[in-house]
Design a protein around this nucleic acid. Structure first.
Length: 338
DNA sequence: CATCGATGTTGAG
DNA sequence: TCAACCTCGATGG
Protein backbone atom coordinates (compact mmCIF):
# COMPACT_ATOMS: atom_id res chain seq x y z
CA UNK A 1 0.00 0.00 0.00
CA UNK A 2 0.80 3.56 -0.34
CA UNK A 3 2.08 5.17 2.79
CA UNK A 4 0.43 8.14 4.45
CA UNK A 5 1.07 10.62 1.66
CA UNK A 6 -1.05 8.70 -0.86
CA UNK A 7 -3.97 8.28 1.48
CA UNK A 8 -4.07 12.02 2.08
CA UNK A 9 -4.04 12.59 -1.66
CA UNK A 10 -6.93 10.17 -2.15
CA UNK A 11 -8.91 11.87 0.60
CA UNK A 12 -8.31 15.12 -1.23
CA UNK A 13 -9.67 13.63 -4.46
CA UNK A 14 -12.87 12.72 -2.65
CA UNK A 15 -13.07 16.15 -1.05
CA UNK A 16 -12.74 17.80 -4.42
CA UNK A 17 -14.89 15.58 -6.62
CA UNK A 18 -17.38 13.80 -4.36
CA UNK A 19 -18.10 15.78 -1.19
CA UNK A 20 -21.37 17.65 -1.62
CA UNK A 21 -22.76 15.19 -4.14
CA UNK A 22 -25.38 12.50 -3.77
CA UNK A 23 -23.68 9.12 -4.08
CA UNK A 24 -24.89 5.99 -5.76
CA UNK A 25 -23.12 3.25 -3.83
CA UNK A 26 -22.83 -0.33 -4.97
CA UNK A 27 -20.68 -3.39 -4.56
CA UNK A 28 -20.13 -4.86 -8.02
CA UNK A 29 -18.19 -7.71 -6.45
CA UNK A 30 -20.95 -8.31 -3.91
CA UNK A 31 -18.80 -8.55 -0.83
CA UNK A 32 -19.90 -5.15 0.43
CA UNK A 33 -23.53 -5.27 -0.65
CA UNK A 34 -24.92 -4.53 2.82
CA UNK A 35 -22.65 -1.58 3.44
CA UNK A 36 -23.28 -0.15 0.00
CA UNK A 37 -27.02 -0.33 0.61
CA UNK A 38 -26.58 1.67 3.81
CA UNK A 39 -24.73 4.44 1.97
CA UNK A 40 -26.66 4.47 -1.27
CA UNK A 41 -28.46 7.73 -2.01
CA UNK A 42 -26.78 9.71 0.75
CA UNK A 43 -24.74 12.82 0.20
CA UNK A 44 -21.04 12.65 0.95
CA UNK A 45 -20.34 15.34 3.52
CA UNK A 46 -16.69 14.93 4.48
CA UNK A 47 -13.50 13.17 3.52
CA UNK A 48 -10.43 12.86 5.68
CA UNK A 49 -7.33 10.78 6.21
CA UNK A 50 -5.52 9.93 9.41
CA UNK A 51 -2.32 8.05 8.74
CA UNK A 52 -3.17 5.24 6.35
CA UNK A 53 -6.85 5.25 7.23
CA UNK A 54 -9.41 7.14 5.22
CA UNK A 55 -12.87 8.17 6.37
CA UNK A 56 -15.72 9.30 4.13
CA UNK A 57 -18.74 10.83 5.85
CA UNK A 58 -22.26 10.49 4.48
CA UNK A 59 -25.24 12.45 5.69
CA UNK A 60 -26.93 11.21 8.84
CA UNK A 61 -23.51 10.63 10.34
CA UNK A 62 -22.52 7.41 8.66
CA UNK A 63 -18.87 6.91 7.86
CA UNK A 64 -17.10 4.61 5.46
CA UNK A 65 -13.72 3.55 6.80
CA UNK A 66 -11.26 2.30 4.22
CA UNK A 67 -7.77 0.93 4.70
CA UNK A 68 -6.01 -0.13 1.52
CA UNK A 69 -3.69 -2.63 3.14
CA UNK A 70 -0.79 -3.72 1.03
CA UNK A 71 -2.41 -3.85 -2.40
CA UNK A 72 -5.69 -2.02 -2.22
CA UNK A 73 -6.36 0.76 -4.70
CA UNK A 74 -8.89 3.38 -5.75
CA UNK A 75 -9.56 3.96 -9.42
CA UNK A 76 -11.11 7.29 -10.32
CA UNK A 77 -12.81 8.07 -13.58
CA UNK A 78 -15.15 10.66 -14.94
CA UNK A 79 -15.38 14.36 -15.11
CA UNK A 80 -16.19 17.32 -12.94
CA UNK A 81 -16.52 21.01 -13.37
CA UNK A 82 -13.10 22.53 -13.83
CA UNK A 83 -11.78 25.39 -11.84
CA UNK A 84 -8.92 27.66 -12.82
CA UNK A 85 -6.38 25.60 -10.95
CA UNK A 86 -7.29 22.45 -12.83
CA UNK A 87 -7.28 24.17 -16.18
CA UNK A 88 -3.92 25.74 -15.60
CA UNK A 89 -2.60 22.33 -14.66
CA UNK A 90 -3.84 21.08 -18.01
CA UNK A 91 -6.12 18.85 -16.01
CA UNK A 92 -7.88 15.93 -17.52
CA UNK A 93 -8.74 12.49 -16.36
CA UNK A 94 -10.26 9.70 -18.29
CA UNK A 95 -9.24 7.18 -15.74
CA UNK A 96 -6.61 7.21 -13.08
CA UNK A 97 -5.38 4.89 -10.44
CA UNK A 98 -4.30 6.13 -7.06
CA UNK A 99 -2.09 4.27 -4.76
CA UNK A 100 -2.35 0.93 -6.37
CA UNK A 101 0.37 -1.61 -6.32
CA UNK A 102 3.03 0.81 -7.49
CA UNK A 103 2.14 4.47 -7.81
CA UNK A 104 5.73 5.62 -8.11
CA UNK A 105 6.20 3.49 -11.20
CA UNK A 106 3.91 5.84 -13.07
CA UNK A 107 6.47 8.58 -12.82
CA UNK A 108 8.90 6.51 -14.88
CA UNK A 109 6.62 6.79 -17.87
CA UNK A 110 4.95 10.06 -17.06
CA UNK A 111 5.61 11.88 -20.28
CA UNK A 112 4.76 9.00 -22.60
CA UNK A 113 1.67 7.99 -20.69
CA UNK A 114 0.32 11.50 -20.58
CA UNK A 115 1.13 11.90 -24.24
CA UNK A 116 -0.79 8.80 -25.19
CA UNK A 117 -3.64 9.86 -23.02
CA UNK A 118 -3.95 13.23 -24.69
CA UNK A 119 -3.82 11.59 -28.07
CA UNK A 120 -6.62 9.23 -27.15
CA UNK A 121 -8.77 12.07 -25.90
CA UNK A 122 -8.45 14.04 -29.09
CA UNK A 123 -8.76 11.16 -31.51
CA UNK A 124 -11.06 8.52 -30.12
CA UNK A 125 -12.65 10.24 -27.19
CA UNK A 126 -12.37 9.19 -23.62
CA UNK A 127 -10.47 6.06 -22.81
CA UNK A 128 -12.67 3.60 -21.02
CA UNK A 129 -10.93 1.05 -18.93
CA UNK A 130 -7.48 1.36 -20.30
CA UNK A 131 -4.98 0.72 -17.60
CA UNK A 132 -3.23 4.00 -18.00
CA UNK A 133 -1.45 4.95 -14.87
CA UNK A 134 -0.88 8.62 -14.70
CA UNK A 135 1.52 10.17 -12.30
CA UNK A 136 -0.29 11.23 -9.18
CA UNK A 137 0.75 14.79 -9.83
CA UNK A 138 -1.40 14.69 -12.92
CA UNK A 139 -4.26 12.69 -11.51
CA UNK A 140 -4.74 15.28 -8.81
CA UNK A 141 -6.35 17.61 -11.28
CA UNK A 142 -7.01 15.44 -14.22
CA UNK A 143 -10.46 15.99 -15.50
CA UNK A 144 -12.06 16.65 -18.84
CA UNK A 145 -15.58 16.82 -20.12
CA UNK A 146 -14.64 14.50 -22.96
CA UNK A 147 -14.30 11.80 -20.32
CA UNK A 148 -18.07 11.87 -19.82
CA UNK A 149 -18.52 9.94 -23.02
CA UNK A 150 -19.14 6.33 -22.10
CA UNK A 151 -19.55 7.27 -18.46
CA UNK A 152 -19.68 5.51 -16.16
CA UNK A 153 -17.34 2.73 -17.28
CA UNK A 154 -18.17 -0.88 -16.55
CA UNK A 155 -16.47 -2.07 -13.37
CA UNK A 156 -13.56 -4.35 -14.18
CA UNK A 157 -12.29 -7.05 -11.85
CA UNK A 158 -13.09 -7.33 -8.17
CA UNK A 159 -14.59 -3.98 -7.28
CA UNK A 160 -15.58 -4.02 -3.62
CA UNK A 161 -17.24 -0.62 -3.67
CA UNK A 162 -18.26 1.75 -6.40
CA UNK A 163 -19.12 5.34 -5.44
CA UNK A 164 -20.80 7.18 -8.28
CA UNK A 165 -21.96 10.74 -8.81
CA UNK A 166 -23.28 12.29 -12.00
CA UNK A 167 -19.77 13.22 -13.03
CA UNK A 168 -17.29 11.02 -11.23
CA UNK A 169 -16.82 7.46 -10.13
CA UNK A 170 -14.47 5.79 -7.68
CA UNK A 171 -13.86 2.04 -7.60
CA UNK A 172 -12.24 0.37 -4.61
CA UNK A 173 -10.50 -2.97 -4.97
CA UNK A 174 -8.50 -5.14 -2.62
CA UNK A 175 -8.85 -3.19 0.62
CA UNK A 176 -7.84 -4.59 3.98
CA UNK A 177 -10.70 -2.73 5.64
CA UNK A 178 -13.95 -1.38 4.28
CA UNK A 179 -16.77 -0.86 6.72
CA UNK A 180 -19.58 1.48 7.70
CA UNK A 181 -19.21 3.04 11.13
CA UNK A 182 -20.98 5.61 13.26
CA UNK A 183 -19.17 8.72 14.44
CA UNK A 184 -18.25 7.26 17.81
CA UNK A 185 -16.64 4.22 16.20
CA UNK A 186 -14.68 6.45 13.85
CA UNK A 187 -13.44 8.44 16.80
CA UNK A 188 -12.26 5.35 18.62
CA UNK A 189 -10.29 4.24 15.58
CA UNK A 190 -8.68 7.67 15.38
CA UNK A 191 -8.01 7.74 19.12
CA UNK A 192 -5.95 4.58 18.78
CA UNK A 193 -3.69 6.17 16.18
CA UNK A 194 -0.50 8.09 16.77
CA UNK A 195 -0.16 11.67 15.56
CA UNK A 196 -0.37 12.56 11.88
CA UNK A 197 1.44 15.73 10.79
CA UNK A 198 -1.49 16.71 8.57
CA UNK A 199 -4.05 16.20 11.32
CA UNK A 200 -2.34 17.20 14.54
CA UNK A 201 -0.90 20.57 15.32
CA UNK A 202 2.85 20.28 14.87
CA UNK A 203 3.74 20.91 18.50
CA UNK A 204 1.06 18.63 19.85
CA UNK A 205 2.01 15.89 17.43
CA UNK A 206 5.64 16.15 18.41
CA UNK A 207 4.80 15.77 22.10
CA UNK A 208 2.52 12.83 21.43
CA UNK A 209 5.12 10.99 19.39
CA UNK A 210 7.79 11.74 21.97
CA UNK A 211 5.61 10.37 24.74
CA UNK A 212 4.96 7.16 22.80
CA UNK A 213 8.66 6.49 22.11
CA UNK A 214 10.40 7.78 25.20
CA UNK A 215 11.46 4.99 27.55
CA UNK A 216 10.25 2.15 25.34
CA UNK A 217 12.49 -0.89 25.20
CA UNK A 218 11.55 -1.46 21.58
CA UNK A 219 13.81 -0.76 18.59
CA UNK A 220 13.07 2.52 16.86
CA UNK A 221 12.85 0.59 13.57
CA UNK A 222 9.75 -1.12 14.95
CA UNK A 223 8.33 1.90 16.76
CA UNK A 224 8.21 3.96 13.56
CA UNK A 225 6.12 1.25 11.89
CA UNK A 226 3.70 1.13 14.82
CA UNK A 227 0.67 3.20 13.83
CA UNK A 228 -0.20 3.83 17.47
CA UNK A 229 3.15 5.59 17.89
CA UNK A 230 3.02 7.78 14.79
CA UNK A 231 0.64 7.61 11.84
CA UNK A 232 1.34 7.08 8.19
CA UNK A 233 4.91 5.81 8.14
CA UNK A 234 5.44 2.56 6.22
CA UNK A 235 8.40 0.51 5.16
CA UNK A 236 9.86 3.03 2.74
CA UNK A 237 9.59 6.08 4.94
CA UNK A 238 10.83 4.10 7.94
CA UNK A 239 14.06 3.10 6.23
CA UNK A 240 14.61 6.53 4.76
CA UNK A 241 13.81 8.48 7.92
CA UNK A 242 16.26 6.37 9.90
CA UNK A 243 18.98 6.85 7.33
CA UNK A 244 18.36 10.59 7.15
CA UNK A 245 18.75 10.68 10.94
CA UNK A 246 21.81 8.37 10.72
CA UNK A 247 20.12 6.21 13.32
CA UNK A 248 20.67 2.50 13.86
CA UNK A 249 17.21 0.91 13.55
CA UNK A 250 18.00 -1.35 16.50
CA UNK A 251 18.43 1.52 18.96
CA UNK A 252 15.64 1.33 21.51
CA UNK A 253 13.31 4.21 22.18
CA UNK A 254 14.71 4.41 25.70
CA UNK A 255 18.22 4.97 24.36
CA UNK A 256 17.19 7.92 22.21
CA UNK A 257 17.62 11.46 23.54
CA UNK A 258 14.44 13.53 23.35
CA UNK A 259 15.87 15.88 20.75
CA UNK A 260 16.61 12.95 18.42
CA UNK A 261 13.00 11.78 18.70
CA UNK A 262 11.78 15.32 18.08
CA UNK A 263 14.00 15.55 15.00
CA UNK A 264 12.46 12.33 13.67
CA UNK A 265 8.99 13.83 14.02
CA UNK A 266 10.06 17.05 12.31
CA UNK A 267 11.57 15.14 9.41
CA UNK A 268 8.35 13.16 9.06
CA UNK A 269 6.40 16.41 8.99
CA UNK A 270 8.66 17.54 6.18
CA UNK A 271 8.65 14.32 4.16
CA UNK A 272 4.90 13.83 4.42
CA UNK A 273 4.27 17.36 3.22
CA UNK A 274 6.61 16.83 0.31
CA UNK A 275 4.99 13.49 -0.53
CA UNK A 276 1.47 14.90 -0.50
CA UNK A 277 2.57 17.84 -2.58
CA UNK A 278 4.41 15.82 -5.23
CA UNK A 279 2.68 12.43 -5.12
CA UNK A 280 6.06 10.78 -4.80
CA UNK A 281 8.08 9.50 -1.90
CA UNK A 282 10.93 11.92 -2.28
CA UNK A 283 13.44 11.17 0.44
CA UNK A 284 16.70 12.33 -1.12
CA UNK A 285 16.17 16.06 -1.29
CA UNK A 286 19.37 18.03 -1.38
CA UNK A 287 20.64 16.17 -4.43
CA UNK A 288 22.34 18.10 -7.18
CA UNK A 289 20.56 18.33 -10.53
CA UNK A 290 22.18 15.21 -11.95
CA UNK A 291 21.19 13.30 -8.87
CA UNK A 292 17.61 14.51 -9.14
CA UNK A 293 17.42 13.49 -12.77
CA UNK A 294 18.78 10.05 -11.97
CA UNK A 295 16.30 9.70 -9.13
CA UNK A 296 13.40 10.39 -11.46
CA UNK A 297 14.75 8.10 -14.16
CA UNK A 298 15.48 5.00 -12.12
CA UNK A 299 13.54 3.93 -9.12
CA UNK A 300 16.73 2.31 -7.86
CA UNK A 301 18.20 5.78 -7.59
CA UNK A 302 15.29 7.15 -5.66
CA UNK A 303 16.15 6.28 -2.09
CA UNK A 304 19.06 6.24 0.31
CA UNK A 305 18.65 2.65 1.48
CA UNK A 306 15.21 1.27 0.62
CA UNK A 307 15.53 -1.77 -1.66
CA UNK A 308 19.29 -1.19 -1.95
CA UNK A 309 20.56 -4.22 -0.04
CA UNK A 310 24.06 -5.22 -1.15
CA UNK A 311 24.60 -1.94 -2.99
CA UNK A 312 27.14 0.59 -1.78
CA UNK A 313 25.86 3.30 0.54
CA UNK A 314 25.60 6.60 -1.28
CA UNK A 315 27.60 8.27 1.47
CA UNK A 316 30.20 5.80 2.74
CA UNK A 317 30.05 2.95 0.16
CA UNK A 318 29.48 0.29 2.80
CA UNK A 319 27.02 -2.32 1.52
CA UNK A 320 23.44 -1.62 2.54
CA UNK A 321 22.19 -4.28 4.94
CA UNK A 322 18.86 -6.10 4.94
CA UNK A 323 17.15 -7.91 7.75
CA UNK A 324 13.61 -9.08 8.28
CA UNK A 325 12.05 -7.52 11.35
CA UNK A 326 8.46 -8.25 12.35
CA UNK A 327 7.92 -9.74 8.91
CA UNK A 328 9.02 -6.64 7.01
CA UNK A 329 12.26 -5.93 5.19
CA UNK A 330 14.42 -3.44 7.01
CA UNK A 331 17.20 -1.71 5.08
CA UNK A 332 20.01 0.35 6.59
CA UNK A 333 23.66 1.32 6.30
CA UNK A 334 25.60 -0.43 9.07
CA UNK A 335 28.29 2.18 8.88
CA UNK A 336 26.42 5.48 8.64
CA UNK A 337 23.65 4.44 11.01
CA UNK A 338 25.13 3.72 14.42
C1' DC B 1 2.00 -18.98 -18.86
C1' DA B 2 3.14 -19.53 -13.64
C1' DT B 3 5.17 -17.71 -9.73
C1' DC B 4 6.74 -14.10 -6.69
C1' DG B 5 6.55 -10.23 -3.95
C1' DA B 6 4.67 -5.63 -2.33
C1' DT B 7 4.71 1.23 0.25
C1' DG B 8 -0.07 -3.48 5.59
C1' DT B 9 -2.84 -5.24 9.25
C1' DT B 10 -5.17 -8.80 11.81
C1' DG B 11 -5.76 -12.71 14.34
C1' DA B 12 -4.69 -17.56 15.30
C1' DG B 13 -1.35 -20.47 17.61
C1' DT C 1 5.84 -15.82 14.74
C1' DC C 2 3.32 -16.61 10.79
C1' DA C 3 -0.45 -17.27 7.61
C1' DA C 4 -4.29 -15.06 5.56
C1' DC C 5 -6.33 -11.44 3.25
C1' DC C 6 -6.60 -10.11 -2.03
C1' DT C 7 -4.68 -7.63 -6.30
C1' DC C 8 -1.50 -6.96 -9.93
C1' DG C 9 3.12 -5.66 -11.90
C1' DA C 10 7.49 -7.81 -12.46
C1' DT C 11 10.00 -11.75 -13.42
C1' DG C 12 11.25 -16.15 -15.33
C1' DG C 13 10.16 -20.14 -18.19
Amino acid sequence: MPEGHSVHRIARQFARHFVGSAIIASSPQGRFAEGAALLNGRTMTDSKAVGKQMFLEFDHALWLRVHLGIYGAWDFAGSVAQDATQRSAGGRMGQTNMSGTDPDAATDARSTVVGEHEASLSSIGAPRRTRLRMAEAESESAIDDAALEGFPPEPVGQVRVRLLTERAVADLRGPTACEVLDAAAVQSVIDALGPDPLVDDADVGEERMLARIRGRRVPIGLLLMDQSVVSGIGNVYRAELLFRARLDPHTTGAALPDDVIRALWRDWVYLLGLGVETGQMLTMDGLDEDGQRAALRNRADRHWVYKREGLPCRICHTNIALEVAAGRKLYWCPSCQQ
